[in-house]
Design a protein around this nucleic acid. Structure first.
Ligand SMILES: [Mn+2]
Ligand SMILES: [Mn+2]
Ligand SMILES: [Zn+2]
Ligand SMILES: [Zn+2]
Lengths: 139, 139
DNA sequence: CTGAATCTGCGAATCATTCGCAAGTGGTCT
DNA sequence: AGACCACTTGCGAATGATTCGCAGATTCAG
């Protein structure tokens, strides 16, 4: 018995564009739709940007990819199987650091207990000032 | 000794548009540039949307207003003197709830101690699923 | 009161994302 | 293999949000 393809078993048609978009999301990390389309073009030069957008939305609907917001602008996409982590975005220098989600577990628990709110800490970045920029402020 | 106007003492010229934009930010809470311009039009019908954008940027530069991101889209502005609080945004129903920033204090401390990162927890919303939507999922 | 620097209104330009539609393709059922 | 139809794609246009360029108006120091 042919083992169903991961896209087919979610009710999606298998098109080269769709497979390549998914592969690009997996290779690149936190990539924008534009960057993903650019990556796909290495293999499939004709892909249209709107096809990338449409497939990202479709893939997100079936849970294979997710988006998050790392800056003030548009979203970036990552594969769902990727290990979740926090993004520490510095508003001064723009750097993006990582931290394990465990750092937020007590915060998440408190919101859950006090407000019944189930938090996805990695959907939005954590905004602030990085240590480097904090030190420069003292000068 | 004439006591300098809050805008003048920050090196800004005093224009009716600028004062009205600041007043609108203070009256409305978490308003978009569009909503702020709309509010200003009640008093000064001629104000242009781009003037609202420019003044919001200017007022933010001198620290009188700040912006935050409550959804996937554009920013919203609030007065700096306003009491900071968390925004709990539900990705399912879109509701925006509030919570005191103290809920995040241990999280903020941990990021500070472990990464030297000074977090502004209210710049980005806290994303997740509200209690109402969580319960509906169980059905 | 004057002049230079700063602001404003207006329309056009950008940028990101979404749409409409006609042509192309994938999966299913003979 | 062949036919059919729903799903996809490419393309260009439409949107919506924000930014720019510029010429005329305003603010404020001198
Ligand atoms: Mn921001
Ligand atoms: Mn989002
Ligand atoms: Zn920094
Ligand atoms: Zn909800």
């Amino acid at each position: 018995m042919a083992q169903p393809h991961e896209l087919r078993e979610r009710g999606l048609r298998l098109t080269p564009q769709r497979e390549l978009v998914l592969a690009a999301v997996r290779e690149l990390d936190h990539a924008t739709p534009e960057e993903i389309a650019e990556k796909v073009r290495q293999t499939h030069p004709g892909i249209n940007l709107s096809t990338a957008y449409r497939n990202l939305e479709t893939l997100e609907n079936v849970g294979l990819v997710q988006h998050s917001h790392l800056g003030h602008g548009g979203a970036s996409y990552h594969a769902s199987e990727e290990v979740a982590h926090l993004h520490l975005v510095c508003g001064t220098c723009g750097s993006v650091g990582d931290a394990p989600i465990e750092v937020a577990s007590s915060f998440v628990n408190e919101l859950s207990e006090d407000y019944g709110f189930r938090t996805d800490v990695s959907h939005f970045a954590v905004y602030g000032t990085c240590s480097t920029c904090s030190q420069k402020e003292l000068e």
